[in-house]
Amino acid sequence: MTLERIPIRVEADDLPMSGNAPAVLREIGELLHRLAEEGVGGAIDLRSLPFLPGDRVWLEERLGCGEVEISLQAGGLSTFSETRFPGVWWVVHRNPQGAVVSEQVEVTRVPDIIVADPNDVRNGLANLNDLISGLS
């Protein structure tokens, strides 16, 4: 008998809410305001907030989906999904086993980690030059 055949269901009809989600939405608003005015955004760590399942669903529904979806393969999959508010990103980092290790809302034009690092660009250039010089 496989484990799936043991009938365990977890009740989830009405998802409980803590009431913290609207406060987070206002905070995102403040960060975006600052990004617009001063060019500096910020981030909110969703895992360190007392969020119940209903809170995250509420927040996800309010933020919605935007135009950009970036995936990064570095020590597990990370996804950066722009919400329907340009500059507001829903960021999920996973480990190599696929479990979520951190989840944040980042307010920035492009998430930091996506931008190629100058040192990496230099290393890449050296490698590319090797490749080119090997061409006959």
Binding site: D45, A74, S78
Partner: peptide, 21 residues
Amino acid sequence: SRRTFLKYCATLASLMALPPS
């Protein structure tokens, strides 16, 4: 990679309840 390392540090900061930055 550098990005793997950055991601690891971001995760660690989040687990340690330090601000994301």
